[in-house]
Design a protein around this nucleic acid. Structure first.
Length: 296
DNA sequence: AAATTCCACAACCGCATCTAA
DNA sequence: ATTAGATGCGGTTGTGGAATT
């Protein structure tokens, strides 16, 4: 079904926001909260379209937004997540506290992409992400997932064997820009075999970006295998720290720390000190996976 | 110093998805 | 089941400043 424009553009202000407009919007949202974007401009005395207001608030005025100075750790995380998720900028942004999807997207398009190309690397597009099975057109958007508890936002379909990757709750935690790229809250992640072996520039170059269908199918097999085991009441026996496929053992690119944080790490060439802490709660992964299964 | 090109980023646009009537 | 409004997302464009010629 087609849609009419979100608002009539007649008489509306466009282009860069003035400080006065910013203040009007900030004051209104602080007083009334987010939402109702369509009616907000009128109520706030702004000659802007609701979409524009939402974008301005989300990307620039919202408290806790970090601007500029993207650290190497953050860049590395962006690259890894992009190789894993494709151009799901909102998902990637959710793992970088204070960063917005727009900023990450811009950073990727203007810097990281060029850097990768310079290195002869062909980053994968959205349609070829390791977690993409369907079309490249917004394959995993499931808005209902936002109704899940904050710490367990599921950003993909949960009613089938689709790829699953959970959004974490990072509110109030601002540690991810230090030396360690941190991801908060363990999220059940269906791991493709190749994704488990890839990371950053090197791994992107090593072939995870040009995944053949067979490799993708391999990853899906792993996912299916995990689910199959879970269905046969062997959940507690599933180890998320490693798994096997065709007599080969694949190590994940992350571990879950005792602070419920997922820590990405490299195996050789990473200079980001992304060392994994030992998992102190041996049942944590099973609990997380249980929670994931309940959602299914 | 002026003109041109490059670059980074803010903002816009169209569409997908959710939700309520 | 259908429809329309609201929201969110990703791709793309416009623009101002920096760098280069």
């Amino acid at each position: 079904m087609g849609r009419a424009p979100c608002c009539s553009k007649v008489g509306l202000q466009r282009g860069p926001w003035s400080p006065k407009e910013d203040k009007l919007l900030t004051d209104y949202v602080q007083a009334n909260g987010e939402g109702q974007w369509r009616s907000l401009p009128k109520k706030a005395g702004l000659l802007r379209c609701g979409k524009s207001c939402r974008l301005r608030w989300m990307n620039y005025l919202r408290p806790g937004i970090k601007r500029g100075n993207v650290t190497e750790a953050e860049e590395d995380l962006i690259i890894r997540l992009q190789s894993l998720l494709g151009n799901r900028w909102s998902l990637i942004a959710a793992r970088l506290p204070g960063r917005t999807d727009n900023e990450i997207k811009n950073h990727w398009n203007t810097r990281l992409l060029k850097r990768l190309h310079k290195g002869g690397i062909q980053p994968q597009k959205s349609s070829t992400s390791l977690l993409s099975k369907k079309s490249s057109k917004q394959p995993t958007k499931k808005k209902s997932n936002n109704k899940l508890p904050d710490h367990f936002h599921n950003t993909t379909a949960t009613s089938s064997t689709e790829d699953v990757l959970h959004r974490e709750d990072f509110s109030g935690n601002d540690n991810a820009t230090v030396n360690m790229a941190q991801v908060y809250r363990p999220k059940p992640i269906k791991i493709c075999s190749e994704s488990a072996k890839s990371n950053s520039f090197g791994s992107v170059a090593s072939g995870s970006t040009n995944k053949s269908s067979s490799n993708q199918e391999e990853g899906e097999e792993v996912v299916d295998k995990l689910e199959e085991e879970a269905k046969t009441s062997q959940v507690s026996d599933i180890s998320w720290s490693s798994f096997e496929l065709d007599d080969q053992s694949y190590e994940p690119r992350f571990e879950i720390s005792d602070e419920n944080q997922i820590l990405f790490y490299d195996d050789d060439d990473c200079d980001l000190s992304l060392q994994a802490d030992p998992v102190s709660d041996s049942n944590l992964l099973d609990k997380v996976y249980d929670e994931y299964l309940r959602l299914l």
